[in-house]
Amino acid sequence: MGLSDKDVQHIAKLARLEVSDGQIADYVEKLTQILDMVDALKEVDTTEVLPLAHPLHMSQRLRADEPTEKNQRDLFQANAEDVKQGLYTVPRVIE
C-alpha cells in the first residue's frame, strides 16, 4: 500500500507536526514500509478471531463514586506558561 505526499502532509497536520518539503519523500517511504508490514499480517485468516481491544485477559476494574482529590491548583499551575484569574491562558482560539 502506497502513501502519497498529500497523505503525509495531512497526517502531519492532524498530529500538529511540522514536516518540511524536503522530509516528505523520506516519510512516504518509511510509513509505506510500516503499512506494508501490516498488510503482510492480513494474510493470516482471522475470520474466527474476535477483535482484540486489550492484550490482558481481564476486564475493567471500577471505582466507587467518591471524590478523593484535593484542590492543588496553585501547584499544578506553577507548571503553566501563562495563568490569569485562575485560568490557563493560550493564544486566542476562536471558531
Partner: peptide, 15 residues
C-alpha cells in the same frame, strides 16, 4: 471550557 470573552488577545481555559 474555553472562555474567549474574558481576555482581549487570549483564550482562558477552565478544566
Amino acid at each position: 471550557k474555553s472562555l474567549h470573552e474574558t481576555f482581549k488577545d487570549q483564550t482562558g481555559i477552565d478544566l
